[in-house]
């Protein structure tokens, strides 16, 4: 059960580091977004007593996870009908371990890209402490697992990459937009506030902010945020496994 899963996850990492374009793209895009948005909006944004570069830092880290999970999900669609995944599906490896392998692979990919970015925290005046870094890493791992599972769930049902783009625009991107990455929960209109509270990613991001921003005014306690994102990650994974198992084709 675990050997196929770890093997599949390892393959994702090996593949990733062998494609330099992917490495550069995955790191450069969010940094670019962050610099453009952060520097552009700059001091017009009066939240949290700092400028926007600082505010958007945690959200950008989550964006890296989001992009990675989207890329990983697209590879599922491409691989499934013809390619590597087809021979995996014809093998006796349990379906759940195939799902676990792909999701863990996506999680690891997200993590190895987002974590180095986290180390840039001092550039916006956020101190790096061992505890903060450890908690931050934990929140990244959970959020990455959650996003990879959600991506897998939709990718498995998508017939084509084009179809998945629709899902990406309607589900994944908005999930990030209203996670508190761009604007804080407490300043949003009430209906938006509800939507943000219903969004699992809000808790993942809040956990990250609680971890790396000293004295962060987060709407949730850190333990609550961790608990919610962990449960959502587990739930999304179970949904994937059930979905794949029920799919006889």
């Amino acid at each position: 059960m675990l050997l196929p899963a770890f093997s599949l996850a390892k393959r994702e990492l090996v593949r990733f580091f062998r494609q330099r374009g992917r490495v550069i793209g995955a790191l450069a895009t969010p940094v670019m977004f962050w610099l453009i948005m952060g520097s552009g909006i700059g001091r017009s944004f009066a939240g949290e007593g700092g400028d926007y570069l600082k505010y958007a830092f945690a959200g950008t880290t989550t964006m890296i996870l989001l992009f990675t999970s989207i890329f990983a999900s697209i590879s599922i669609i491409e691989d499934r009908r013809e390619g590597f995944l087809q021979s995996v599906l014809a093998s006796p490896a349990p379906r759940a371990s195939i799902v676990l392998g792909k999701v863990l692979g996506g999680t690891a990919l997200g993590f190895v890209q987002a974590f180095p970015f986290l180390l840039l925290a001092p550039t916006v005046g956020l101190p790096l402490t061992a505890i903060g870094l450890a908690a931050g890493a934990a929140s990244l791992a959970l959020t990455s697992f959650f996003l990879s599972s959600v991506g897998f769930f939709f990718a498995w049902r998508s017939e084509s990459v084009a179809g998945f783009h629709g899902i990406m625009n309607v589900v994944l991107m908005p999930m990030w937009l209203i996670s508190g990455a761009l604007f804080p929960l407490d300043g949003a209109r009430s209906w938006m506030g509800y939507a943000m509270r219903a969004n699992p990613l809000t808790y993942g991001l809040s956990a990250l902010k609680s971890a790396i921003i000293p004295g962060a005014h987060e709407p949730f306690r850190m333990a609550t945020s961790f608990a919610v994102i962990a449960c959502c990650a587990a739930g999304a994974f179970v949904a994937c496994s059930v979905s794949v198992k029920g799919d006889k084709a």
């Binding site: 393959r11 090996v14 593949r15 062998r18 494609q19 013809e82 390619g83 590597f84 087809q86 021979s87 014809a90 093998s91 006796p92």
Partner: peptide
Amino acid sequence: RRAIGVVFQATSTDKK
């Protein structure tokens, strides 16, 4: 699945 080996028409080897 344990009993058979399968070779697909489309390449299933990972090119990387």
